[in-house]
Design a protein around this nucleic acid. Structure first.
Length: 287
DNA sequence: AAACGAATCAACCGCATGTCT
DNA sequence: CAGACATGCGGTTGATTCGTT
């Protein structure tokens, strides 16, 4: 019994969004919010799948997003949080023994932490941070002689043979992107679990990372609280990003009337851009 | 000015997780 | 409890932009 596709693929548009599509989506979401992404494209009059709409909104159109490169402070915070969380952890449901068997690598339940990091940086998305990490920060750390994964000096970061085993698996997947890396482990740093990561498979690696972290975030109480909230690798009690972004109101819209047709996708009745003028959402772009 | 390669980033894909019935 | 479904996340791709020769 196969899983059904998230939406009807036939006839749906893919690829870059046009200004007109953006306008439709923004207008609809700002006035009605979303309760069910699957319905959004239909109600907004878009030939896109709901998943695509959600991605476009969260990564690009959301009015509370900052644009442009990460500031130095933000970058330091990302590095600090990455050193604490890692970008990967292993599910506690996976027995130890599996970690030692290459063939079971595909069974590892790997959950990433970019969204957790992004949650600490209001106005930034996980996608943006992930891209920035892969393109900028990783290189910076390399130049500094630090392993981008372990945040330790490169020579000291490869003590665990198991890590090499897992790294090999990761390199297979990463090789298409990381063709230039070479030499003393510099090309092998990509995507490995931190060498400090506990092998019990219990939650994320935060145990020793803070000890070796540059911890550059003097201005970051968020960072401090994050590390304080993760003793022994327990899951962090992160705030809901929606709280940070204060977009609850968008979600709490009158969906009953929308779905019943009285709200009408095209009959919004409010000046959408007036609502966003203070967050850099420029009406001129859309009109 | 043209050609080429590298870098960047928006978007897609597949899978994990949570919720509901 | 199992299956269906919706959503969210991280990895990857590919088009575009930028820099160099």
């Amino acid at each position: 019994m196969g899983r059904q596709p998230c939406c009807e693929k036939v006839g749906l548009k893919k690829g870059p969004w046009t200004a007109e599509e953006d306008q439709k989506l923004v207008a609809f979401l700002l006035s009605h919010g979303h309760c069910c992404w699957r319905l959004v494209p239909k109600l907004a009059g878009l030939l896109r799948c709901g998943k695509s709409c959600r991605l476009r909104w969260t990564n690009y159109l959301r009015p509370d997003l900052k644009r442009g490169l990460l500031s130095d402070d933000e970058e330091k915070l990302v590095i600090d949080l990455h050193s604490q969380l890692g970008n990967r952890c292993v599910s506690s449901s996976i027995p130890d023994i599996f970690l030692h068997v290459r063939v079971v690598n595909s069974l590892l339940v790997l959950r990433r932490r970019w969204s957790k990091i992004a949650a600490r940086l209001p106005g930034r998305t996980d996608n943006e941070i992930k891209n920035h990490w892969n393109t900028h920060i990783r290189k910076k750390l390399k130049k500094m002689g630090l392993d981008p994964v372990t945040h330790q000096p490169v020579a000291a970061s490869r003590a665990d043979p198991l890590e090499d085993l897992q790294q090999e698996h990761c390199d297979d997947k990463a090789s298409s992107q990381e063709s230039a890396g070479s030499g003393t482990g510099a090309g092998a740093e990509e995507e490995a679990p931190t060498s400090a990561e506990p092998k019990q498979g219990a939650a994320c690696s935060v145990s020793t990372a803070s000890a070796v972290s540059p911890s550059p975030c003097s201005s970051s109480s968020a960072s401090a609280s994050a590390s304080a909230a993760t003793p022994g690798g327990a899951d962090v009690d992160w705030p809901d990003p929606l709280d940070l972004f204060q977009v609850d109101a968008i979600i709490d819209m009158d969906w009953a009337s929308i779905l019943s047709g009285s709200g009408g996708g095209g009959d919004i009745g409010v000046d959408l851009f007036d609502q966003c003028s203070d967050v850099g959402f420029d009406q001129e772009v859309w009109m």
